[in-house]
């Protein structure tokens, strides 16, 4: 019996595909998410919109909060560690968390190095803005990728930008010759072997979710049509007026993302979405997506 192999790490992400992973801060939230059909939850002390509002240093959640959520639901529970904070990741692994998100939503612990994720049995998901960043994280051992988007804003524009960057690069390199691919690898700062693998597969070798700004069923379906394998919803659910129906609606929109009638039906009468923040009005220092490289 081999535990913590690449196949079981990347395989869990494959089982999450076509699903919605929801940020939750209490066991009650987690229960609502599970009952709405979430395929996993992200256990946090605060959702990104509140982290953004609170300012200061954002760290790994209190283990007490995470354990209470793990005891409440039967679906996988993820938790966030700061970029480069491998001890927070060790703590989460020791607690039996199912996936660690090395996340720019928390304040980075290391501005030069991300966690060397091959050292862990627990799988990691990491954010990216383009193909180069995705492949650097993969090279470090991430078993799942997500766009960074701009968390806590309810503005989908950055998630779209990042997903288009990743998918556009993949389409571009599919037709490249070896020498062109080497030049592209240099330009993207990506390991050549992984570039070759992407060219061969015509996609990332791991599951790629959308994250950072999803607030409505239509946002979720948009990301799916752009090529996402599934969707993370952070503040979008529990910062909205009526979380449970919105959560169910986003789950439906992800399954039936190619069917506008179903997305329309799912979107009806949900009440107010989370209050949004136009990313263009944010100062450079308050952007989360620029954390990490």
């Amino acid at each position: 019996m081999d535990r913590g192999t690449w196949k079981v790490k990347a395989g869990l992400a494959q089982m999450l595909k076509g699903g919605v992973i929801m940020d939750v801060v209490t066991p009650d939230h987690a229960k609502i998410a599970e009952e709405a059909g979430a395929c996993a939850v992200m256990a946090l002390e605060r959702v990104p919109a509140d982290i953004r509002a609170a300012g200061g240093v954002a760290r790994m959640a209190d283990p007490e909060v995470i354990l209470a959520i793990m005891e409440t639901v039967t679906i996988p529970v993820m938790a966030k560690a700061r970029i480069g904070h491998f001890v927070e990741a060790q703590v989460l692994e020791s607690m039996g968390v199912d996936y660690v998100d090395e996340s720019e939503v928390l304040t980075p612990a290391d501005e030069d190095n991300h966690i060397w994720k091959h050292d862990f049995k627990v799988p990691f998901v990491c954010g990216c803005r383009d193909l180069g960043e995705a492949l650097r994280r993969l090279a470090e051992g991430a078993a799942m990728i997500r766009t960074k988007g701009e968390a806590g804003t309810g503005d989908i524009v950055e998630a779209v930008r990042h997903m288009r960057a990743v998918m556009g690069s993949i389409r571009k390199i599919k037709g490249m010759s070896g020498d062109e691919l080497m030049a592209e690898a240099k330009a993207l700062g990506a390991p050549l072997e992984l570039m070759q693998q992407v060219r061969r597969l015509g996609r990332l070798p791991v599951v790629n979710f959308a994250a950072g700004g999803v607030a409505t069923p239509a946002d979720a379906a948009l990301m799916m049509q752009l090529g996402a394998d599934g969707v993370f919803v952070g503040s979008g659910i529990f910062k909205s007026k009526d979380p449970a129906p919105r959560a169910r609606a986003i789950v439906k929109a992800v399954t039936y993302y190619k069917d506008p009638q179903m997305v329309a039906e799912a979107s009806r009468g949900l009440g107010e979405a989370m209050p949004g923040l136009d990313v263009k009005t944010l100062s450079e220092e308050s952007l989360l997506a620029t954390r990490g490289w």
């Binding site: 019996m1 079981v8 799988p123």
Partner: peptide, 10 residues
Amino acid sequence: FGRQVDSFET
């Protein structure tokens, strides 16, 4: 068999 850290191949 437990949580993800207990997932295995055999």
